[in-house]
Nucleic acid binder design. Structure first.
Lengths: 269, 269
DNA sequence: CTTAACTGCGATCAGTGTTCGCTTTAAACC
DNA sequence: GGTTTAAAGCGAACACTGATCGCAGTTAAG
């Protein structure tokens, strides 16, 4: 019912706490970076900061709140101005940093998000963050809104656009991670997977699926957002972030539609 | 390592099983429909089909596999041809059902997905389904590929498009659900939420956020994909599915960009 | 008929999130 | 300054979870 962000971190009375929300968030983040979300248990987090499980409940009402702390901590890794770390506690207007169109501003944010997702893969598996975000998430929202400032969208549509944009980036990051994972699994299963899919495809049902699969199985990668294990000619490890890798291209096309004025006609190809 | 879809449901030898994967899937689905994903425990599912927890492991290797069964069972609720239930076991080419452009075909699938997500809210919270989908999910993929058939996309890009499209629909469904939840919470918290956001906004930082929030707080809803608790003039309960409710409008705009040929210029507004 | 493989399942294990009750510490109040 | 009040720290324990083991009963293959 009540979010952790509505409670003060510490009340006036009583002894000064030996730990803090930030310390818990950092410890949990380290655990998750190494062992995934499953490695974040009350006992492991407590041990990481040198205390017992019961003590954690002085800082956090529930394990899910630890995950919220982690999410906001990750949101704090955005750098909004070139090489100038933001200070979200200081009352200052965020820099208006989009020198060009909103699309390039969104792309820049998306590339940062991609790096963050790569750095912390557990972020993708995190369940839907509660409606009330933490201070870093608010700063992020503010920044996206600033980028959308020159758009023709009206005020109420902008908040929704922020949500859609954030979800889109998350979706693309998840797609990339799945592809990488699928590549490894494909190498493991081999025969089993082939037998399964081929049995489903070979006898004539699912003709379109057969075409799509055969289209990628043979060499000759087409280059445009290939769905295979590692897109592109050579299996680049995390993604090149160039101006025309699959991530940027797909996102650009989607955003073009999302940012277009509602009355515009879709280009019937 | 090995998916449940690679194992035969039943081997030749031994007594005939008293239950089946389908029965387990249906029982788990009913439990989740009533009590959420947390209500789906090995013990509760076992009790629902009238057996003990250990017996479930004769049909399923892990709890997550039950979730996979549920996901595929939900994917079986699509009806691909108008009022003709598909029979995925019969070798038959799926109907080519898109009488118009691919966009309208995708929209029709998306509306079905929205209804399914509304019927089974736990589907949104389901963690990323494994790379190997079940038979119903394969039939769904085949259908989306059929809709994409008249597109200019090459074969390898189509599979990726299916993934993006499916994720998009899921994202929009989640956004709708969050908005509904946020509306209730906003009624509950009231003062607390107001204090939190207003404190963050009032003193001059986050000016864009302040503008966006004030833009929706005052009446005068703009109508274009409003982010408020219940979008539109009157709080319609689940969504009207008309040609211009927020869900359709947003998805249409995004898909217009996604389906556009890669070389096309974005309409700089 | 023998053998081998499978099913059903009671008992049980390790591990999880969370709570209780107690002592200790420090700020607030008179 | 002494008293009150509220919080911090935390050992012990609870309820519950997913999963395993081993045995008895059952069926098909050789």
């Amino acid at each position: 019912m009540e979010s952790i962000w509505l409670r003060p971190e510490r009340s006036a009375r009583g002894p000064v706490p030996e730990h803090s929300r930030a310390e818990i968030a950092r410890a949990a983040m380290t655990l998750a970076d190494q062992g995934g979300l499953a490695a974040v248990t009350m006992r492991s987090v407590a041990a990481a900061i040198g205390t017992g499980p019961a003590s954690l409940y002085r800082y956090v009402g529930t394990r899910d709140e630890i995950l919220e702390l982690m999410a906001d901590e990750a949101a704090g890794e955005y750098r909004f101005s070139p090489s100038v770390p933001p200070e979200p506690q200081q009352p200052q207007k965020p820099q208006q940093p989009h020198p060009g169109d909103p699309l390039s501003g969104l792309l820049q944010l998306a590339r940062q998000a991609r790096r963050i997702y790569q750095r912390h893969p557990w972020l993708i598996d995190l369940p839907a963050v509660g409606v009330l975000p933490g201070p870093n998430a608010i700063a992020y929202t503010e920044q996206v809104l600033a980028v959308l400032d020159t758009t023709g969208l009206d005020h109420s549509a902008r908040l929704e656009t922020v949500g859609i944009f954030t979800g889109l980036v998350r979706l693309l990051a998840r797609t990339e991670a799945d592809q990488q994972r699928a590549g490894q699994q494909l190498a493991d299963w081999q025969g089993a997977l082939a037998g399964y899919l081929i049995a489903a495809v070979a006898d004539g049902r699912y003709p379109h699926l057969a075409a799509a699969l055969s289209g990628q199985g043979g060499g000759q990668a087409t280059g445009a957002a290939a769905p295979g294990p590692a897109a592109g000619p050579a299996g680049r490890p995390p993604g090149p972030a160039g101006p025309d890798d699959p991530f940027d291209r797909t996102l650009t096309r989607i955003l073009a539609g999302l940012l277009a004025p509602p009355g515009s006609q879709p280009p019937d190809q």
